[in-house]
């Protein structure tokens, strides 16, 4: 996306050697996507800003050992996702850190809503209320599906980079992505179905 084109000339070697000006350029190139990922995962600006700052502080500490097996952005996303998950878990002490993969990866989500809302006009689909319904549905995705969905469909990472960032296999990413997309589709179908019913009864 937009950011990828601005980063091509950043020198990993300079970053590893502690070049502060180069680090400042890295921060400017990638702070926006990291901030918006945090905002999506945590739902509030203060926590997103904490994740942003902690991500780059951690990157600064660990840059000398960055091996470059993934891109810098993928590496930053990995740090940011971990920071955000730690923040989420601080708020929910009952969540077991090892228990995030408990859902059956082989179980497909079966569609139950067959409302044909895809042909609704764009301004209706992207109304303020429609966007809120979408944001709400994304916010309510289970954590292990949400992280995959955010990196792949919102931050626009490839399947491979998403897998690298989350330490998953590519096939795990694909399964989780499909489940996330189908869950969102289900929620939006319910929402737009209700809207279509109301319009019919009013008109």
């Amino acid at each position: 996306m937009m950011v990828e084109t601005t980063i091509q000339d950043i020198s990993i070697e300079a970053l590893r050697n502690g070049d502060r000006a180069e680090f400042a350029r890295l921060v400017d190139a990638y702070s926006a996507p990291i901030y918006h990922l945090g905002l999506r995962m945590l739902g509030n600006e203060q926590d997103a800003e904490d994740v942003l700052q902690n991500t780059f502080l951690s990157a600064l500490t660990h840059l000398p050992t960055f091996e470059g097996r993934s891109s810098v952005l993928t590496w930053l996303y990995r740090i940011a996702v971990n920071e955000a998950l730690m923040t989420l878990r601080r708020g929910k002490p009952e969540v077991n850190i090892d228990d995030t993969d408990s859902s059956d990866e082989n179980e497909n989500i079966h569609p139950t809503q067959f409302v044909d809302w895809g042909a609704l006009p764009e301004d209706e689909l992207l109304s303020t209320e429609g966007k809120q319904a979408l944001d709400h549905a994304i916010q309510n995705l289970p954590e292990n599906l949400q992280t995959v969905f955010l990196l792949r469909d919102i931050q626009d990472l490839s399947i491979k980079d998403t897998a690298d960032a989350l330490n998953l296999t590519e096939s795990n990413v694909k399964v989780r992505l499909l489940r996330a997309r189908l869950m969102l589709r289900e929620q939006l179908s319910y929402y737009y179905g209700e809207r279509m019913k109301k319009e019919k009864s009013n008109g």
Binding site: V3, P33, L52, P111, I154, L184, L188
Partner: peptide
């Protein structure tokens, strides 16, 4: 319908996320 509305769901995600690329100056 499932294919069309899933595709539309992803389109909407992209469309509604497009303006969120900047970082607030104070942040």
């Amino acid at each position: 319908i499932v294919v069309d509305t899933t595709r539309k769901t992803i389109d909407l995600v992209h469309a509604s996320n497009a303006p969120q690329t900047g970082l607030p100056d104070d942040v």
